[in-house]
Simulated scan of single mutants.
Amino acid sequence: MALLEVKDLHVYYGKIHALKGVSLELGKDQIVTLIGANGAGKSTTLKAISGILGASEGQITYDGEPLRDLAAHHIVGKGIVQVPEGRRIFSRLTVAENLKIGAFLLSDKKWIADAEERVLELFPRIRQRLKQIAGTLSGGEQQMLAIARGLMSNPRVLLLDEPSMGLAPILVQQIFDTIVGIRKSGIAVLLVEQNAFLALQIADYGYVIETGAISLKGTGADLLDNPQVKEAYLG
């Protein structure tokens, strides 16, 4: 049984039918990627899973439990955490304060301290900037902080929305190496990413979404070799 399953999901923005029966699965300790053009429904899918957007039809099941219509903070409490597109850090707070906000639903002080140490080992550049105002970090450092803040919530599933957007190539590779490390730590990752080539390279499985519907699916390797995917997304 999949850890996270989305089945026949429909989402509307007013009269606009944004998701038209999206179905996908994420297994324990997997990286699954969702690729597609801008406006295809990738971010909408993540927002529906995390409870930011309501779905009009369909099912979202996590570890056998229905999630649809739960409030976003309850979904975080169950172990599904989204790192949004654009980082959305608290720019006027320090790096350390941003990390503490990530653990706002947790009460075990020792666990929180241990979690902070784990994320600082994962992102040593963040350790050097704990007292720095988050808005003064570079774009790459802000992305690292956004992911670190998400990991402070003790997730079993991490929803990553465009983590490489706007980053220099050397930082993009660092972020993707980190995503692989997160999976190795036992956290499943559902990845929305504009860099389809890198996303499919690290993904166990992938889905292609077009105008709100899944058009192709397969292992990351299979989609990398798919002529339609090559033509549309890999250049």
Rank of each mutant, 00 (worst) to 15 (best):
G51V: 01
G139W: 10
G181S: 10
N195L: 02
S164N: 01
S107R: 13
H17L: 14
D222T: 10
I126L: 14
V76S: 01
H17T: 09
L26F: 08
Y13W: 15
T61D: 14
D225L: 09
V32R: 06
P163T: 12
K42T: 10
I35L: 05
A134Y: 00
K7M: 03
P169A: 07
I80A: 00
G21N: 09
K230L: 06
A232Y: 03
G21Q: 08
D108H: 11
N98W: 05
K7T: 11
F123M: 12
S50Y: 02
R156F: 13
G218K: 03
Q30W: 11
K217I: 13
L145T: 08
K7L: 12
W111P: 15
N195C: 08
A40V: 03
I179Q: 02
Q30R: 07
I101T: 15
G235S: 09
T178N: 05
E121S: 14
V95A: 05
S56R: 06
F90V: 07
A221K: 15
S91M: 12
I147M: 04
H73P: 04
R92I: 06
A221H: 14
L106E: 09
T178R: 06
M152D: 02
G218L: 02
E121Q: 13
L158Y: 03
E57P: 06
L158T: 07
I52D: 07
T94N: 01
L151A: 11
I52M: 13
A72N: 04
V83D: 08
V32W: 03
V81F: 00
Q174S: 12
S185I: 13
V76W: 00
H17Q: 14
L9F: 00
S215G: 08
N38I: 11
I179T: 04
T136C: 15
K20G: 11
T178F: 01
G58S: 02
I49T: 05
E57I: 08
I31L: 09
K15D: 14
K109M: 10
D69Y: 15
L158P: 01
S185L: 08
K217H: 11
G135D: 12
Q59T: 13
I170E: 08
D108V: 07
I175D: 05
I209V: 12
R88E: 10
V76H: 02
Y12G: 02
E193N: 13
K230G: 00
K230W: 03
D63A: 13
A196L: 03
K230Q: 09
E97H: 12
I112N: 08
A37L: 12
G102R: 04
I133Q: 12
D8V: 09
E85T: 00
Q173R: 15
T94R: 01
F197K: 13
K109C: 11
W111K: 13
N195G: 03
L70A: 15
P84Q: 05
I49V: 02
Q82K: 09
I214Q: 05
E25Y: 15
T44I: 07
F90T: 05
I35Y: 00
S43Y: 04
L106F: 11
Q132W: 08
G186E: 06
I80P: 00
L159N: 06
E116P: 13
M144S: 05
L24M: 10
I52Y: 09
L198G: 03
L223R: 02
V229M: 10
G102E: 12
I49F: 04
S153R: 02
A115C: 09
K28A: 14
L46D: 06
Q82P: 06
K15S: 15
A55P: 01
V22T: 08
I126Y: 00
G166R: 03
T33H: 02
L105I: 11
A232P: 01
